[in-house]
Computed example of a mutant assay.
Amino acid sequence: MVGWIIRTLVLCFAVGFVLSFLRIDPASILTNSWETVQDIVSLAVEAGRWALPYILIGAVIVVPLSLIGLIVRWNRSRPPS
Rank of each mutant, 00 (worst) to 15 (best):
M1R: 06
G3H: 09
G3A: 13
G3V: 09
W4C: 13
W4I: 15
I5F: 14
I5C: 11
I6K: 07
R7I: 05
R7S: 13
T8R: 08
T8Y: 10
T8W: 09
V10W: 10
V10M: 11
L11V: 11
L11K: 12
A14Y: 12
A14H: 09
V15H: 04
G16P: 00
F17G: 03
F17V: 12
F17K: 04
F17H: 09
V18N: 00
V18H: 03
V18P: 00
V18L: 13
L19A: 13
S20M: 07
F21N: 01
F21G: 03
F21V: 10
L22K: 08
L22A: 15
L22T: 09
R23I: 05
I24G: 05
D25M: 01
P26F: 12
A27L: 15
A27R: 13
S28L: 01
I29P: 00
L30R: 11
S33P: 04
S33E: 05
W34Q: 12
E35V: 10
T36M: 04
V37Y: 12
Q38K: 13
Q38D: 11
D39H: 06
D39Y: 04
I40W: 01
V41W: 07
V41N: 05
S42F: 12
S42E: 06
L43D: 08
L43I: 13
A44L: 14
E46T: 15
A47F: 14
A47W: 08
A47N: 04
G48H: 05
G48Y: 10
G48P: 00
R49L: 14
W50V: 15
W50H: 14
A51T: 15
L52Q: 07
L52I: 10
P53Y: 05
P53M: 04
Y54R: 04
Y54T: 07
I55G: 11
I55R: 03
L56W: 07
L56Q: 06
I57W: 12
I57L: 14
I57N: 03
G58K: 01
G58C: 11
G58E: 03
G58H: 05
A59Y: 10
A59L: 12
A59E: 06
A59I: 04
I61F: 15
V62G: 06
V63N: 01
V63Q: 01
P64V: 04
P64H: 05
P64M: 03
L65H: 06
S66V: 01
L67V: 13
L67N: 01
L67A: 10
G69S: 08
L70Y: 05
I71P: 00
V72P: 00
R73Q: 07
R73I: 00
R73F: 06
W74C: 02
N75W: 10
N75K: 13
R76V: 00
R76L: 08
S77H: 05
R78T: 01
P79I: 07
P79D: 09
P80E: 09
